[in-house]
Design a protein around this nucleic acid. Sequence first.
DNA 1: CGATGGTTTCAGTGCCCGCCGAAACAGGCG
DNA 2: CGCCTGTTTCGGCGGGCACTGAAACCATCG
Lengths: 154, 154
Amino acid sequence: MSVGRETRLSAWIERFAAHFEREGIPLIGGRILGYLLVCQPTERTAAELSQELEASSGSISTNLKFLVGEGLVTKRTRRGRQAAQYRINEKRWGDLVARKLDALTSVRELTEAGMRLMSGDPERAMRLRAVDDLYTWLATELPAVWERRPSSSR
Amino acid sequence: MSVGRETRLSAWIERFAAHFEREGIPLIGGRILGYLLVCQPTERTAAELSQELEASSGSISTNLKFLVGEGLVTKRTRRGRQAAQYRINEKRWGDLVARKLDALTSVRELTEAGMRLMSGDPERAMRLRAVDDLYTWLATELPAVWERRPSSSR
DNA sequence: CGATGGTTTCAGTGCCCGCCGAAACAGGCG
DNA sequence: CGCCTGTTTCGGCGGGCACTGAAACCATCG
């Protein structure tokens, strides 16, 4: 007997969340992202997320606040007694990637500072120099690549 | 009165370690890397590192083992009663960066798997599609950039 | 002005992980 | 075969963080 589509989807969400947990996003935050990427309809209330993902209302609240702050999730409030709706803001996913690239290239500032401290002692600077060269190259290449990004993925 | 060079160096090592701690490398591991990049002479024993970095022998051992495993540090044993010497292996720093880039592009496998689960429902796949497009583009561009890396930074 | 449904806050819990340091271990030396 | 030095192992400690759930909060509706 075959596994239902929703079962496979929730397994996928779990893998998705596991990956981003390694990148520093809380497990529940990653689940919210994965779920909001594929759910139908596209918008969900905090209560629905809590039920679907089997997470406490507190965790959902904390993580939604975080994700809204990052711009990855959009909150839509409605008048009356109606619950706010949350949906993915996939357009901002690029920001997430850009921050990752920045984290990489920013090491260059460290290596350069180190090189300045080593000035006047080329012998001793050799090891750091090799590392600095690598990051200097990265810091010139990566931003250029990012700029060439096609509009279809913005 | 001005601050001594060694004092500024240890402050730099601390910033260096702090940066890599955010990337998942233990604080002491980062200190070892920073220290081995600039120390003179270039090789140190475990006992010396323990003293210089004010870390326990156990922590030094654990972290050296980890760094040697990563290829970032090389262990040189000497015959007789002599202690083993450790030195930085700056040539392998590229591997560290390459793994970071891989972590980024590997998200594509996740988004592709998700897209397959969404097949036959283009409406529902739209959000995930935008994210998948971004990573697909990344996965084609980044490896190409890495290949163009000049030999000076290898 | 209660009552109601939804959301956020917050104190408490458990878990994980980096670190310590003493004890065990390894392997040359005398 | 002990001894000695350097290294690793391992139990334990402490800090930090994700998560929980109940209580407080907020805004609307009757």
